[in-house]
Write a protein that binds this DNA or RNA. Structure first.
Lengths: 218, 218
DNA sequence: CGCCGAATGGACTCCGAGGTCCGTTTTCCC
DNA sequence: GGGAAAACGGACCTCGGAGTCCATTCGGCG
């Protein structure tokens, strides 16, 4: 793990380096544990132990568990966007999309489809019981889709995509295929459905390319 | 106190009509509550109250909460498959798929994208903590996809779809788009992403039609 | 150095949710 | 009608997880 500046302090209380580091450890541990066990199934004692802190630290940095979860939503969102920005900000070609797809599939295949997308799993667990978390997740998804649609816009501007291609809708469709793929892969404990889903979405985008490559529709 | 029925093979307990009805009420209540609040956030007391039963009844019919949840997975799966069978078993045309799409979208728009698919929401919550539930959900998804792929097979056999169309993959892609659409709609509290996702999948299937019909979907 | 607030450890309280138990009522079958 | 088992009501127990508190240590700054 490299540098992470994603744990932004909230209030303007004086916070020492040490305090920031502890807060970071807590979020990092919560992130790991809650990805595997889910939010509700993870206890504060689990997090306390995994983060090598104490009960008082948890409540020193977060008002209660709900606040910790909300902070985690932002933390995880920032991590995902940071990772995705690296893979998408220079997207300019269809093969770039394919590389992006392959990276996601490979990462998920490492654990046989388990755990899925950190954002997607929180969404279904939180969005109907914490409005703040829901809107935060919704914004993150929007930002993620924007990274994709920006790339598609560049492809359209450079003449790779037809003018009637709608980058926003294509990005939404791709994101849905990705999330649905994560979900089915998680249920099956097998990445295959995720691959099929992403390939469908890529094929759909491909159909908007100005010059369909080589042979007619495989 | 001792059991006189020594020769009794297993616990093939007699179950009365009344007992079956109570069990049904419990499952029905659990189904309703857990769809809204999630599995872990729903307590047995909630279910007891909503089902007009008592604690002893819950434990008379189910060994513990985990068993109740497992039963719910099957129960909900059966409900979904029953509903989907009605809408898909006579699928023979592309317009049939469009009607199926419209029905799902309309149902989900009634609550602005909230709650999502009963199967999908359980999947992310349970599949990493209850192997039995996971495999049960996985089977249900497979059966659901089969309903779709069977229809696509019929369309291919009747010459509507090209021979190189792969009904299984198309069905998986459609299911992923549906589940991903549910998830994004849930996050956004807006059905729009679900529509976009389903339209993408339908457009993809459409690209395998022997003679692409005039106008676009919807 | 000495002060003060941040940072920390960890014992403790409180409550709610899962699970148990037993006495009572209903149903089934002879 | 009567007996046995199923169905039932609900008080009760237990435990674990959220949240509190306070004494202690650390660290930055005059």
């Amino acid at each position: 793990m490299g540098d992470e500046r994603v744990a932004a302090p909230t209030d303007r209380r004086r916070i020492s380096q040490r305090g920031v580091a502890t807060r970071e450890r807590i979020l990092e541990a919560a992130n790991r544990l809650m990805l595997v066990r889910g939010v509700n199934a993870t206890t504060l004692d689990d997090i306390r132990e995994a983060s090598q802190t104490s009960k008082s630290q948890l409540y020193h940095h977060f008002a209660d568990k709900q606040e910790l979860v909300r902070a985690l939503v932002k933390y995880r969102g920032a991590l995902v966007l940071q990772r995705e920005r690296a893979g998408l900000e220079r997207l300019r070609s269809f093969s770039g999309l394919v590389r992006w797809r392959n990276a996601l599939v490979q990462a998920n295949s490492l654990n046989n489809g388990k755990y899925g997308c950190g954002l997607g799993s929180m969404t279904l667990e939180l969005s109907d019981q914490d409005e703040q978390a829901r809107s935060s997740l919704s914004e993150t998804f929007a930002a993620w889709e924007r990274l994709i649609s920006d790339g598609l816009h560049r492809m359209r501007d450079s003449g790779l995509l037809r003018q009637d291609a709608d980058p926003e809708k294509l990005a939404t469709g791709l994101m849905a295929a990705l999330q649905g793929g994560y979900l089915l892969a998680n249920a099956a404990h097998d990445v295959a459905p995720m691959e099929v889903a992403l390939d469908m979405a890529l094929e759909h985008i491909k159909s908007f390319l100005v010059q369909p490559s080589g042979e007619p529709t495989r």
